[in-house]
């Protein structure tokens, strides 16, 4: 679909063409989330030549997935910051309190071992600037209390009518709903926004560091 419908404007490989911008940079200026890409492809961008496509939701999602692949794996070459300085910022801001990297760190957040290979550069910026923009349900947290008074807090990884499964710093847990006196799902990100907590140049450095977090070096 991409080559036939989009290639004329965006170029056959999506790297920009006669009538449409480069889609491989990993930073979509109209919005980086899957949801906003879905809207752009299905409805178009009013007031611009970008048309909307009346395809089925399934097909649109396939295009969104394809758009993601255009920029995946390129973050390291696209990053403009300094990796060494980024590593120091990673330590300074205690990112390791929540993220595991090379065998060390916490695990409230996802492991960052391969984040440079798996994510686009736009996604990395967005994760730091606006972590709340696109929190996937697998990152929602269970916050509750058992009838015995113990606090329950962790990433909700599964749920059914009778129980929650969650993980916290101690491991994997299953708790019966009947054993809880309070339970709520927290859909905001556990990760604070770093917008304003560092300069733009520092943000570039940190993203350059993340972009180079890849299993087995470069792939």
């Amino acid at each position: 679909m991409f080559r036939a419908q989009c290639g004329a404007c965006h170029g056959p490989g999506g790297a920009g063409g006669a009538a449409g911008p480069d889609l491989t940079t990993g930073t979509m200026k109209r919005g980086n989330s899957d949801e906003s890409l879905f809207q752009i492809v299905s409805k178009g961008i009013p007031g611009t030549p970008m048309p909307g496509y009346g395809a089925s939701a399934k097909e649109i999602w396939q295009v969104v997935a394809y758009l993601r692949t255009l920029s995946i794996g390129k973050a390291a070459e696209q990053a403009k910051g300094n990796v060494e300085r980024g590593a120091a910022l990673y330590t300074q801001h205690k990112c390791g309190g929540c993220h595991e990297l090379r065998g060390a760190g916490g695990w409230l957040g996802p492991s960052l071992d391969n984040v440079g290979a798996e994510r686009s550069i736009g996604h990395l910026y967005a994760a730091l600037r606006e972590p709340n923009s696109d929190v996937a349900p697998q990152s929602w947290r269970l916050r509750g209390k058992t009838k015995a008074g113990a606090a329950v807090m962790g990433v909700r990884i599964n749920e059914d009518t009778f129980s929650y499964q969650y993980r916290d710093a101690r491991g994997l847990h299953s708790v019966a709903k009947s054993a809880l006196s309070e339970a709520a799902l927290v859909t905001e990100s556990a990760m604070p926004s770093y917008a304003g907590k560092m300069t733009e140049a520092e943000m570039d450095d940190l993203v350059a560091f993340l972009a180079n977090c890849r299993v087995g070096g470069g792939r």
């Binding site: 990796v83 390791g96 309190g97 060390a104 760190g105 710093a169 101690r170």
Partner: peptide, 17 residues
């Protein structure tokens, strides 16, 4: 390497391994 040293400073959360 500097990078590895920086990472080694993280506090390891005590999980039964």
């Amino acid at each position: 390497m500097r990078l590895a040293m920086a990472l080694a400073l993280f506090v390891q959360v005590a999980v039964a391994q």
